[in-house]
Design a binder for these strands. Sequence first.
DNA 1: TTAATAGTGTCTTTCAGACAATATTAT
DNA 2: ATAATATTGTCTGAAAGACACTATTAA
Lengths: 241, 241
Amino acid sequence: MDGFLEAYNPRDYPAVAVTVDVVALTIRAGRLCALLIERGEPPFAGQRALPGGFVRNETLDDAARRELAEETGLADRVHLEQLKTYGDPHRDPRMRVFSVAYLAFAPSLPDARAGTDASAAYWVPVDQATGLAFDHDAILADGLERARAKLEYTPLATAFVGSEFTITELRQVYAAVWGEDLHAGNFHRKVLSVPGFVEGTGQTAERGNEKGGPRPKIYRAGDARLLHPALLRPTREDDLR
Amino acid sequence: MDGFLEAYNPRDYPAVAVTVDVVALTIRAGRLCALLIERGEPPFAGQRALPGGFVRNETLDDAARRELAEETGLADRVHLEQLKTYGDPHRDPRMRVFSVAYLAFAPSLPDARAGTDASAAYWVPVDQATGLAFDHDAILADGLERARAKLEYTPLATAFVGSEFTITELRQVYAAVWGEDLHAGNFHRKVLSVPGFVEGTGQTAERGNEKGGPRPKIYRAGDARLLHPALLRPTREDDLR
DNA sequence: TTAATAGTGTCTTTCAGACAATATTAT
DNA sequence: ATAATATTGTCTGAAAGACACTATTAA
């Protein structure tokens, strides 16, 4: 960082731009979905991409929150964290663009709306979110891996459900994000045994499951920031080497 | 990302710069140390800072590796990963500068050398690495927390030692990074029980410890990319809420 | 009545951590 | 000889995962 700025004249260098792109995830109908926009202009016109935009005179966090709000309306109640920065020289064919990617967890939301720039915005199941513009396939993949890992040792699964929820809803979040079913009984006991993960409301749901069964108890998110002990994914040997 | 670039003229916007800054960590004499440079020019002249520099026509990873090599000579055998990007509007008083921070783990190295820009470069114990220029105190703190967490579930402690090492050396890495001693017997058994963490060489050290004791066996890093089960830090209750 | 679910109980295996024991080596 | 260390052994309690069981509710 030293030296160059003293002699730095912006006009001497090729222009660079900095954007934020957001991997926004939610769960709809039991499936993990990502927010995508449809590009109206070249390059990649007509192709899908992650929502994002130019960073203005604001912090990076604020830029990400603003972009997300433009597409979803909702920026409160959404967990947002920085993911990674992508800056390969030719990731954008027009000029050098650095993209600071963010990861967002949203509860089930009304349909997305088109932002100011995008011609359309909608939630897409992540296994169908392929062929994205730029390097957005890779960004999405990194976001998914981060999300899967974060469910293990943080209570962020609660960011995918409403402020009040049942243990079964929470389990369905894990199942959707990890892509595999969890044993209902063991999951139930585990969640209740982790201090601060959830706290009871004393209330019970109006009805049981559509297919029958007792009315479940209703919980709120607790005050834990980390799960201890963690809720580990079933291990796949291949991931380790 | 959509829209603005079509109408984007660099001359219409305040210039921005993108740099990389590196949190390079090593262990010297049993203490965790960070690489710092001394700034020669204002702002923050004479103050210490993280090594870093302007991103050229190269990937971000390459930029970080180049900057690190300028200060340490050594870029091989160094683990390097992206940490986080810092872009608050006024983090640099002169202009808008986005810094992509990297985290590096190096084995014990010869003294650092001054890079092209810096007037001096040296390893400083992390508890004495305070009062840095810009927002580098915060970047260093984020890097340390990442390093501490990574030792738990990855074999990256081996990046701090030579290619051949003893279990005791590995334990001293954990002790230095986590800032607390570990029980020698339990640590020993634990490391050997995690598949792929270390593999024996069949060799034994020339001598035992200076103060006596048997000659320890010598190990190499194994092929695991993740530790399973993980080697968890002693829990501090406060960290959880 | 039937079938599915919420929630609890039990058992086995694994693992972390405390502590002890033994053999080996530098001084 | 002494003292420190490397390595292994033993024990206890926590926790994960498999499985079984009960009570409750929708259809």
